[in-house]
Design a protein around this nucleic acid. Structure first.
Lengths: 203, 203, 203, 203
DNA sequence: CATGAATGAGTGTTCATTCAT
DNA sequence: TATGAATGAACACTCATTCAT
């Protein structure tokens, strides 16, 4: 009845197994086909156990999305590298890291796309992350382009977030052979937009 | 079984009413919540009548998407205006027309997003349109930038398609007050990317 | 509203077309798959017209079954031939005629089988015909075997009816190559049973 | 999806209750009127539970038919009794056992008849059993009438199967008072046919 | 006379969630 | 703690029948 707070090692492991199962199924079948009974079966857990760890289906997806995004955030932090590098180089590395993550964690793209048409809880989680990713970008931009007015940074950052997420997940719907080219175009779009946005703020 | 090929005026009107009802519901709820009984009820039609006009649920959504896109295509053709205008002006008008359509036909954005995580029929219709919109853009680009190699035009056009669709539908998830600013950023991104893509092909 | 009594030639023709369409569909799809809209379409008639000629679906099937049976009765009457022939010869010709009819009018077997598990109206029509076929057989038997007590003739006749109908329609479910052999066995069963039944009544 | 493989005693009981409910309904209505919601209601089970045990409607009917036939096969094996008894005595006992089963398990006849006009899965199950019953009969015949050529046994056995099944299920459609007489005629037909078939193979 | 658009109860099936063991 | 049997609202779709034109 009282939802368990998983403090013990075994409980944590079970929780992880459930999330992994959900990820595997999204990868195999797409978000709309996902159902809790299938997740439990894939995780090797009784359906009742699944509901001991998560209050409802949405909570599983929210947790999975958060897990994905924690991993993605780590990768992006690494990709930034030396913050005094040229902006173009940083941008290129970030896009590459982003794309590598999409390509490896196939379930992630499906979940991200699905989140945009899903019910409120998932959509809000997704939006929250866009916000925090946006804030992180704002910080980066502020450090490198102090001439850009504070209130202009938010829309620029947000535009970058959607630009990268949108183009890369679209790339995944195309045949494999086209993708490297589309990744290149994504970088070009990002860099061009960045330059344009920063230039407009110049003296 | 025998889908009605509407010969009477009344039949044509009924078909339209069903599509309008579907559009209204997508606008109010979201794509995943759409169900055929609700569409019939909203259209003021018996469920059996709905199935006289469409063989299944997917066919309704496909027809709706096609209807949306015909209307969008007309708007975009008008927006291009004088093809000898500066590229930036044309791009600005196209983005504005695009956004105006999204803002008026609110259901369209939800359907477009939903199509990407939907079953095969809807996804294929959506892809087909991205292709034909891409081809149209390729034509525009070829006319204005003959220096761009033929085989480079396709990825550039496709990138533009996803860039505009993605940024504008994302804009609609934001509070109304932010939107004009995001539309402006979208234009800036489009123009910057266009310049970058064309410049790379210069002698 | 008032069901039409088809006196005009055109009306009779329409009625016949509807029955033919039903027969064709039963042949193609089996009884359970039959639906009135499909019958109307196959007949090239509007669904409303169909209901001008028949008050409901059952009435169509009843009429069709009766039409089949009139034709079958004619064939059987011919098959009897010279009533002074040996009983075995007559029996052989009757079984052959029966089987030929089943094989030509494929829909008939499906309808006959279906009638046995159908709702009351169809089942009653089917039973009525078994009765009248039985009566006809009783007449034949009485003429050739006056020693058989009156009250014994009915069960014998009825047994013969079900024996022939059952074995022959079962034969149609078997591969084509087996059928001639099964027809032969049917004849043998009929003749053997006839002899046994008549012998038991001998002095 | 994952059909329950019943490990708990309760689960086994539920499965049985569903089959019993289906049998009761077939007995009361007819096969074509049977629907899964009614079966669940009659079984005192939620519709979802029914689908935990059977993947679809056909599977219920197939399972029910198989259960019936297992029971019937046991009865017939007992009815054969001493295999050195006169053939006529064995045949009489088998027909009696057959009829007793039909009379007790009223649903069985309706299901058997229905199976012949049903969709593929049920029809195939039914055919498979006719085959195995036929094979059993072939064995009996071979033991008692070695003079009958091997390749002649199959059609004879099959004819017997359909003869008995057909006549007895037809008997059930007649008023109760007539039935004993029809059972007697069935025995007479079986015995007469058997003698005729065996005689034809004598030296 | 005929048409065909419209009706709506009914059918098979799914799946998030609960709860007795 | 974990299990898995059970629930039932909801959904996509069919088809016999009616009735305005």
């Amino acid at each position: 009845m009282a939802r368990r707070k998983p403090t013990q090692a075994r409980a944590l492991r079970t929780r992880a197994r459930i999330l992994e199962a959900a990820a595997a199924l999204i990868e195999r079948e797409q978000l709309p086909g996902l159902n809790t009974n299938a997740v439990a079966r894939e995780a090797g857990v009784a359906i009742g156990t699944l509901y001991d760890y998560f209050p409802n289906k949405d909570a599983i997806l929210v947790a999975l999305l958060e897990a994905f995004r924690e991993r993605l955030a780590e990768r992006l932090a690494v990709a930034v590298g030396d913050p005094s590098d040229p902006v173009d180089a940083i941008a290129g590395r970030v896009v590459d890291a982003f794309y590598a993550f999409y390509a490896e964690e196939t379930g992630y793209a499906a979940l991200w796309l699905g989140a945009q048409v899903a019910g409120a809880p998932l959509r809000e989680t997704s939006d929250a992350w866009s916000d925090s990713f946006g804030a992180w970008l704002e910080g980066l931009i502020g450090a490198r382009a102090p001439q850009l007015a504070r209130e202009d940074r938010a829309p620029v950052a947000r535009t970058l977030v959607y630009l990268v997420s949108g183009l890369l997940s679209a790339a995944l719907t195309r045949p494999e052979a086209e993708r490297p080219r589309l990744v290149r175009e994504t970088k070009r779009a990002v860099i061009a937009y960045l330059h344009a946005a920063l230039a407009s703020a110049a003296p």
